[in-house]
Design a protein around this nucleic acid. Structure first.
Lengths: 126, 126, 126, 126
DNA sequence: GTGGTCTAGACCACA
DNA sequence: GTGGTCTAGACCACC
């Protein structure tokens, strides 16, 4: 699992970490049961503060992607599921992004192809 | 064009305005040449600050969705286009959202269908 | 709304704050729409750190008892409801406490009476 | 007596052990005079540290639920009783839990019924 | 060793 | 003014 943090980005560091871990799960790089690097480890690896890492981990825990094991620390889990609420949020998140692409002249198919490309990289479910 | 502002959203108000105007363009509700309500008008309609509306309008101007006309005020334009930079950004924006949906157990097809649904609402280009 | 913090308690300060706010809602002292004191305000009132207060507020937000309004700050809301998950948790929380009382020789009725007393203080729903 | 330890719970393991033993007593599974498994035994059964088990046992001893017998090891006893202090603590523990349930829209009767259900499982005193 | 809590203080985004 | 993010560093609980 290789994280890449952009310090100049306007997206918060903890969000970058969170997103990349979720992408790691989608890509099959991170599997259920995998132990995450300790908060302090990851923080020192990237030269960031442990609270920043903790916030990312805690959000992932709240969403059901991580669990805290009393001995192993944070562990990948898969309790997150797509309920109706999530689907609603998903649409709300996608809508402005897709609208922007469309309003810039892209065709529906072009946009769909990009979505497909991204999804194809994700590991097929066994 | 009906704007709906959620004061308890974590999305900044100026972003909400900006997004909804872009969506209005995608949906065909706002067409090239349409005059936007004045900053003062819109601000007082929603009981928000002038600066907030101006920030949204200015961002839209920077992106090529609005123009400032000396007499008519802000006017819908269509100078925004999808260059390589934008496509890169688009992918970067979509990736974490799609990964999240996928990691929650949704199938690629399900996710694509949602994208398609959203896109279908947008007005076909004449 | 009067908060009382016990610094020598082994229950974390942010939990004390969180609990008392929930009790305030149950008692009818805090009503939907009420604006909470600002993070900094409450922190300085009690001589504690603003992060501690923020953690309490954020937990309450996650549970649906508070919302962040862009102008008013944290506001009492009532999105929290008792789904099956909550009921499960509730039982899991109550069980050891009630077992302890029972194992110390209290009769079922005695224990129930205490629960009733506590519940009776809560404001009847209109 | 079957213990079940959740390593990913936020409840400390020694507390889980302690609680389940008290519940065992309430349920009548553990009776006065019963010999507990040895610390070593229990620790190795669950792959946990000796100190963790010892801490649970010692706390139970302090509260009057266990006694140390020179030969038999830890033995169930029933010296624990509900003095005024305990009743105070009991109320303090119950209040936030019940307030939470109530603030989520449960009716007083619903909550009481749950308490009753739990209590009913406990063995009637002979 | 791990995570959990709390402090003190800085700077930024938003309205 | 509000909350949001990040840092640096301390001390504790648990295993």
């Amino acid at each position: 699992m290789l994280l890449k943090i952009e310090f100049e980005s306007d997206v918060p560091i903890y969000t970058q970490i969170k997103n990349q871990i979720i992408e790691g799960i989608a890509l099959g790089i991170l599997k259920e049961g995998d132990e995450m690097p300790s908060i302090r480890q990851l923080a020192s690896d990237f030269g960031i503060n442990l609270h920043t890492v903790k916030k990312a981990y805690d959000l992932l825990k709240d969403e059901g992607f991580l669990n805290v094991h009393r001995r192993k620390g944070y562990v990948v889990t898969k309790n997150a599921f797509a309920d109706d609420n999530f689907i609603e949020e998903l649409k709300k998140d996608l809508q402005p992004i897709l609208a922007n692409a469309y309003s810039r002249g892209m065709m529906q198919d072009e946009i769909l192809t990009i979505c497909e490309e991204i999804l194809r990289k994700f590991k097929n479910k066994e």
